[in-house]
Design a protein around this nucleic acid. Structure first.
Lengths: 228, 228
DNA sequence: TCAAAAGAGAGAGCACTGCTCTTGACGAGG
DNA sequence: CCTCGTCAAGAGCAGTGCTCTCTCTTTTGA
């Protein structure tokens, strides 16, 4: 590993600083990020930004990737900090970590899970980081199944759905019965909905005690999944 | 009722046409709607639009109100078309109607339920139309409770949450026990999450049979709520 | 009936945006 | 020393929301 040249290090620092300033702007101006404003804050001219990011969308992509990474880290770390056999504890820890990260970084959460930016198409390398949070949740179910602490639901699924889910389970190396995978995805859907409603201000005025609400709703889904 | 003057009728027609063109643009360009482009499509100059909508945000508000209205109509009509005592049938009908409307009007759905437009604050008169879909769902539970076909869950809620939910129930004239209201809101959250994931392309590549997936997931929540 | 008032469209202009292209300066490697 | 790659700056293009003024037409009231 050769030491990076001075130029390379300065360049990396510039990229980091641009992203930091852009994140700050994201928090106030939302997804319509202005390259000129970022450049102004950095004391340079707008065209100079293009030396580091070929377009505004590329800067957005970099921010999105970083955000997925941070959210995935937070959820996985919270999950790993709990006794692996305590399935319900892991579930709540993972859910709370996702919510805490979203509340701490609302603009970045909106960038990840809000309405897609019109002309912008997320590149393929965002798919893997994007699937880390749901995979962490489903991993809890897989561990519970492996250790015998979680028994799969008995209901029958219609055939095409069962095949789809079996294929998903196979593609993600999760040996989960389709019905259980469906419940795990229901939990992930619910988690996303809870955070989005809270962040986008749909329940704030009527539910002052949001921590308790969140915990209760995630507990409901844990019941539905069958976590002991 | 005096007949509206010619000018008033022409003006109303203009407003409708502007909204129709704006909706068309919404479908392709998303929330960053261009007044100039709308004006261009109508063969007039951009400044003339301001005779009808004092700002771009006001045009957006008008579109949002119309969309809430349409979605509320769709959900309520679907609910009303089912035998009132068939709680599960009503639940599925309402959920399917919301999804169908969203799939038919993805851009408007994103306007309603996507990330909030940065500088834009929804005016107060959007609150009532916005609560129609969830109220339709909760209304199913209220009817089930009144007819004795639905028994409320027995779990205990933490006190602050119970009080919050009791207040919400009172404010909406829905005599629902807090635990049941919480489950109804879980259903609404799940419905929103399901539609959003499907519309924003998070499950499309892995689940080809989306109708079956949607029905199964809403059935899961119906089970959680306790619909017979 | 006829003038005053109100409504409507057009155009110019301001400050802003993303992005491209050209020009000139600077530093590291041969 | 000197060339070559990197960088910042500036001008410029096309587009944006919005305001102001000017003109023309329709409606209204005495």
């Amino acid at each position: 590993m050769v030491a990076p040249s001075l130029r390379a290090r300065v360049r990396a620092g510039m990229i980091d600083e641009i992203k930091a300033v852009a994140r700050r702007h994201l928090a106030t101006d939302g997804a319509n990020l202005s390259l000129r404003a970022v450049a102004r804050d950095m004391g340079m001219v707008s065209s100079a930004i293009y030396r580091y990011f070929p377009s505004r969308d590329d800067l957005l992509t970099a921010l999105i990737l970083d955000a997925y990474q941070a959210l995935g880290d937070a959820v996985e770390a919270a999950d790993a900090a709990v006794d692996p056999v305590d399935l319900r504890g892991r579930w709540h820890a993972a859910c709370r970590a996702a919510r805490a990260w979203a509340l701490a970084h609302p603009a970045e959460y909106a960038l990840l899970y809000g309405s897609p930016v019109p002309g912008y198409a997320a590149p393929d390398d965002t798919v893997a980081p994007a699937s880390r949070p749901p995979l962490a949740l489903v991993g809890i179910l897989r561990d519970g199944l492996a250790s015998g602490r979680l028994r799969p639901p008995e209901e029958e699924l219609p055939e095409p759905l069962r095949d789809d889910l079996a294929e998903v389970a196979a593609a993600t190396d999760m040996a989960l019965p389709p019905a259980l995978l469906a419940r795990g995805m229901a939990g992930w859907t619910q988690l996303f909905g809870l955070i989005s409603f809270e962040l986008f201000g749909r329940i704030n005025r009527m539910l002052p005690h949001r921590d308790e609400y969140f915990d209760h709703q995630t507990a409901l889904l844990a019941d539905l999944i069958g976590l002991p």
